[in-house]
Design a protein around this nucleic acid. Structure first.
Lengths: 221, 221
DNA sequence: TCTTTTCCTGACCGTATGGTCAGGGTTGAG
DNA sequence: CTCAACCCTGACCATACGGTCAGGAAAAGA
């Protein structure tokens, strides 16, 4: 879209500091919640004085809002897998893979989003009612088309989407619990792949998009 | 177990006040998070002076701990559906129904638990490592037996359990998002039933416990 | 170089929080 | 009836929080 423009030193500093602050804030908000997070904690994690945070982000709420919107954007992009897919096996399969990948790469953002929604979405309610609703209805239409074309069973599209969100985000939001049940170790590359395949297999079989469970021999232990 | 014993007035007062405080705390912790919740807010919701809360519960942490353990106990009991079931259709089916029912009846507790785990389980880590681990391994063994008996496909038992937890708890933890996508209205009796059937259908079909998707005609809108 | 704009931060402020405590009221056993 | 044990609470305290601000340093335009 835009050429790799030459940045003035000031612009570079601003961009870099905002990046550092947002990353620190994402982690602290995820680990302590909005109420439990303090600007001092975020400042320490970012390696900057607290007053400097308030120079870039006027209030705690504004900083939080930016963090929440960031993960939301990432999730919206994951939907590209959904469109332009010939059928549910490719579309939903790719979507599950994309969402699982995000759960692994952005666990903090996922937790912040979960926390925000659980608390009644005080700062992104408008997004839920506009962007998310439109996005959802678009995918619902796609699923309905696949059903009409006989490519999958007549499952309720909304509940299917909830299952996809719930299952994939669970690996980020409840990662600590999964880690504990995994002997206190984070999931390995192999285990993440097994988890993804397991979810894909159950869901795609469950909605009748895959006729016979063929490659279901993915064991963890 | 115990006969309906006669309570002294003091015991009755203590029991009733603890109940009121715990109910208020569950709601406030769910809506504001541990860090965002204040003893004053809980006191107002309970209709008691703040100092009275500290008479029954020494610290905010102790009150919080009691709330978290409460929902954990409820979830453990839901597992009774799992045992003594002849196969996955009855066992897992009943478990899904029980967990969906809990999501509807105890949405606050579910959110408090989710929040606790997301923040690294600071106060119930020992429970995760003992009670939850034992519980999980027990159900894993049951699932393995069903697989060995050819009553379901060889799915990874751990990932299946995660899917059950994620999907059912999603209706409590992300209830606000679901409500927004449902036109701002809470799910009706009919919709809750449809959600439960949808989850049961996809999962049981997905693990090969149900040969053919027969009753998949559950639509929301 | 001079001047303006932006970046940076130590010190500070008002407020709200978790928790305490002294003292008064109530209950029930002996 | 007596009195110890328990229940209750307004007033208070130390702390930590989000946010402000004056003033200095550095960059960029003129």
């Amino acid at each position: 879209m835009s050429a790799p423009e030459r940045l003035s030193k000031r612009d570079a500093i601003r961009r870099e500091n905002e990046r550092i602050i947002l990353a620190a804030a994402e982690k602290v908000f995820a680990e302590a919640g909005f109420g439990g997070a303090t600007m001092q904690l975020i400042a320490d994690m970012a390696g900057l004085p607290k007053a400097n945070l308030h120079y870039y982000f006027a209030t705690k709420e504004e900083l939080y809002r930016r963090v929440v919107r960031q993960i939301f954007e990432i999730w919206l992009h994951a939907a590209d897998s959904f469109d332009n897919a010939p059928g549910p096996v490719e579309g939903i399969g790719a979507y599950i893979e994309a969402k699982m990948d995000i759960s692994r790469r952005h666990p903090f953002g996922s937790k912040v989003w979960a926390s925000e929604v659980m608390h009644g979405a005080p700062v992104i309610q408008d997004y839920l009612e506009t962007t998310l609703r439109e996005w959802t209805e678009g995918r619902v239409a796609v699923i309905r088309r696949w059903i009409a074309a006989g490519r999958m069973a007549p499952v309720d599209p909304h509940h299917l989407l909830y299952m996809l969100w719930a299952t994939t985000q669970h690996y980020a939001d409840f990662g600590h619990q999964i880690e504990t049940l995994n002997g206190g170790r984070a999931l390995s590359d192999r285990q993440w792949k097994a988890a993804t395949e397991s979810v894909k297999s159950i869901v795609l079989t469950g909605i009748g998009a895959v006729p016979r469970p063929e490659d279901l021999s993915n064991w963890t232990s």
